[in-house]
């Protein structure tokens, strides 16, 4: 790999006494799409949510080992988690529009990073909505409540909200599993485009999705990373037995 932006080293994660991620080691390459796959409950979300420390909010969650972001351990005591989360954005499984207008949903994040000038906010809102391929659909009703959008539109709004503050990495946790096929297709296309500017890590259950959009895939089973490689290689000839079984639909 040429340009490593995130490196996970000997990383363990626990919920109370339950070990959800076991001795994970991996590298994430800049401006690539990395997919995390594996059967339900294998620790994909836990690993993903450790990367922006959003799991700090879960009571009794704790970690061991390191996650390096630009060669600095994010679990260091000096880390400012708030600015970390601004640099590593996240989009969740179910759309999470805030109960405010479309415009304010995006302005919310901008205000957090200290953008106060009206004109700048307007420009950024437009820029991010365009990037999220939502602008054309909502440009005349930016004051409408975000809750009134369709599920797919809401998810694209959440993506716009995430990119508006220009993070370096965006984490996606099964972003399309609650959506219809058409919306799914739109969002997949979107993610591929975003990879030009951002580094993307995506958890998915959908083998086709991983094949279509990701450059690298890592495969987890019972908390461990059992295999990681270029997506095409993994899909064509998985070396590990559980990966083979998963890909052929025997487990999952």
């Amino acid at each position: 790999m040429r340009d490593v932006i995130i490196e996970v080293k000997n990383f363990n994660a626990y919920y109370a006494d339950k070990k959800a991620v076991k001795d994970a080691n991996l590298k994430i390459e800049k401006n690539k799409i990395t997919a995390i796959m594996g059967p339900s409950g294998c620790g994909k979300s836990t690993l993903l949510r450790s990367i922006n420390r959003i799991n700090d909010l879960v009571p009794e969650f704790r970690t061991e080992g390191e996650i390096l972001f630009h060669d600095r351990n994010i679990y260091d005591r000096e880390t400012d988690v708030y600015s970390l989360r601004r640099r590593i954005g996240m989009v969740f499984q179910r759309p999470t529009p805030f109960p405010m207008s479309i415009f304010d949903n995006i302005a919310y994040g901008l205000k957090l990073i200290g953008v106060t000038e009206k004109k700048e906010i307007k420009e950024k809102v437009r820029w991010s909505l365009e990037k999220a391929a939502l602008w054309e659909e909502v440009k005349d009703e930016l004051d409408k409540s975000a809750l009134k959008l369709s599920g797919g539109q809401q998810q694209r709004l959440c993506i716009a909200r995430a990119i508006a503050i220009e993070p370096e990495v965006i984490l996606f946790d099964e972003p399309t599993s609650a959506l219809d096929p058409v919306s799914t297709q739109k969002i997949e296309g979107l993610i591929e485009e975003l990879a030009e500017e951002f580094t993307i890590i995506i958890v998915t259950h959908n083998i086709g999705q991983a094949a279509r959009i990701s450059d690298y895939t890592l495969f987890m089973y019972q908390g461990e990373i059992v295999e990681q490689n270029e997506t095409t290689k993994i899909l064509r000839n998985p070396t590990h037995e559980v990966t083979q079984q998963y890909l052929s639909g025997k487990i999952g």
Binding site: L84, G89, M90, R94, T96, F98, K111, R161, A162
Partner: peptide, 21 residues
């Protein structure tokens, strides 16, 4: 809870999540 997490994921502090969201 997801809504709170989404706000935290943007880097908001607890008091900001509370008072602004």
């Amino acid at each position: 809870r997801e809504l709170r997490e989404a706000a935290y994921a943007l880097g908001a502090r607890k008091s900001e999540v509370i008072f602004e969201m």
